[in-house]
Structure formats: C-alpha cells, structure tokens
Amino acid sequence: MSGVSLEIELSGIKLRNPFILASGFIDDDPSLLSRAWKAGFGALTTKSLTPKPREGYKPPIIAFTKAGYLNAVGLSNPGVDSLPRLLSKLPRESKVIVSIAGSTVDDFRYGAEKSNLDNVDIIELNLSCPHVKSMGMDIIHDISYSLDIIDAVVSTSDKPVYIKLGLTDTYLSLVSKALDKGVSGFTIMNTIKALAIDTASLKPILSNVYGGLSGPAIHPIAVRMVYEVYREYQVPIIGVGGVMDWEDVVEFIAAGASAVGVGSYLFLKPVESVKDLINDLMKFLEDNGYGNVVDLRGVAHKK
C-alpha cells in the first residue's frame, strides 16, 4: 500500500476514506448495510426513513436514459423505528449517516429522536426528494418551513445535522440561514425532477410518471453547487451526483467537497465495485504528489 492517506473528518467524525454510500442505495436492510461496510465505504447513509414504514411505488421504479437514471421509488422504507435493527449487523467502528424524511415538522423531530443512538454519527435531513408530494422539494422551496424543521431537529439532537439540498434558485440563502440555526454540513445534491417516455410503448416509464434524475447528467450541476457553497462558507460538504469514475470524485473534492457520495455508480454493479473508486483516487493522489486527500479539498478555488 502507498503512503497516501484517504482519511477525512466530517464534523469531527473520522472516516477511513471519503466515499459514502448515498441514501437510497441498498441501504434498507441490516445485511445490505453490513455488506456495504465490508465493501470499503468510509460511511453509509441509510435509506430516508419516515415515522411510519412506507411501501413506495409500483414498478417500474427505474428508467434508464442516455445521460442518467430516473427513479421514483416513492421513499419506500422500513420506518425510523427500525433503525436499531437496521444497524444491528454493523461493527462498532462503522460510520453511519441516518437520512430522515417526513411531511411535518413533527415527523422530522420524531426521526431525530429515534436517531439518537450510539452508532449514529450524523443526521441528514432529506428536504429535497423530487417525486413524493409534500415530502421533498415542496419543503426545500419553502425556506421558512425548512428552517422550522431544522430548528426542531437541531434542538432535539446532539448529532451533527446535515441538509440534503436539491436544485433551487435559493439554495445559497438556505445554506446561510441553516448555518445560523446550527446545521453542520450539506449533502449536495438530490435528484432533479424529470420524465422519461418509452419509445416502444410511447408511455411514461415510471408508474409515478415523474421521477428523480441522477447520474452523469446532474454531475456538473452538483459540482457547481458544491463549488458555490464551499466558496461562500467552507463548511463540510458531501458531494453527491453522477460519480461514475475517479475524475468525478476528484472534481467534487477540488470543488470543495470533504466527502463524496456514491449512488448511481452502483446500477448493475455489486457494491464491492466501490473498491475501484477508492483505488483510483489513491492512484490519482499518488501520481499528483498529494500525501493526503484533504490537501486536494477546494484546490479549484486557489488563485
């Protein structure tokens, strides 16, 4: 092994590397989380959990497009009460981000209370799911409502709280206000509302008609948002969106991300393939004379 260090810190929590399993990817079952941890991720994000279990939408829940993927899973999840069971197969040293979703301030407060477990490291508020009414983009478009949720969670929990941002025109203003309320960091970004029509049947593919676009198509948008948030606030950022190879990873970190979320990369690939990203990042750092991944953070801003 080389002497390059991939270790990072997120709000005081040490991660063995900057790769984080993004919310919604094979993360709603104890054995899946355990396998993902063994695969080498630095931290795991759970599926967005709501106070009550949710069934989600009927298949098709996924559509493939030229530049990315659409999903309308419908926030299916086993409910936040299942958290102790969900995390039961993870070793002590594992790092866990619990994603919480809901449609009222109380839903989020409840989620935060239930996430107050020893093996939970960070709470991520999913305020930006694009395909479930009243549970996502409806929230983040309404800054004062978002701030009420943030208030409730920050006052309920001692854990660092991160906000998962979606694409809005006003996100920088939300970031600034959220920081004033005690938010510790941001996960950038969620999927973007989109639609795909099948050319064989000439029908919308997703049972929900609309879905969230992820993958290569959104990567440059996510890089822009990471870059802007870092430029203004230099806070911990998890860059998520279209990480398909090491170049996307390097871009996010150079733009200012401390860590990088891996999601659509896992379509049709076993979770162990994250090793390729880890090794490729290591090689990039080595080849370019970085002893430490942290030194790469934000270099795109240097004059």
Binding site: I26, S31, L32, G56, I62, V73
Partner: peptide, 24 residues
C-alpha cells in the same frame, strides 16, 4: 420481490445475507 431489477433498491435481498436476487 424484484422492483428495480438492477441492484439498487434493496427490495430483493436474500434475508440475512446481503445478497441481491436481481443482481447476485
């Protein structure tokens, strides 16, 4: 229960193993 069929949603996990019926 296969929902996505491409190894991302977790619906088809073989309980206790972390193996996905649709992918593995």
């Amino acid at each position: 229960i296969v929902k996505c069929g491409v190894g991302v949603c977790g619906s088809c996990v073989l309980e206790g193993t972390g193996l996905l019926v649709c992918l593995d």
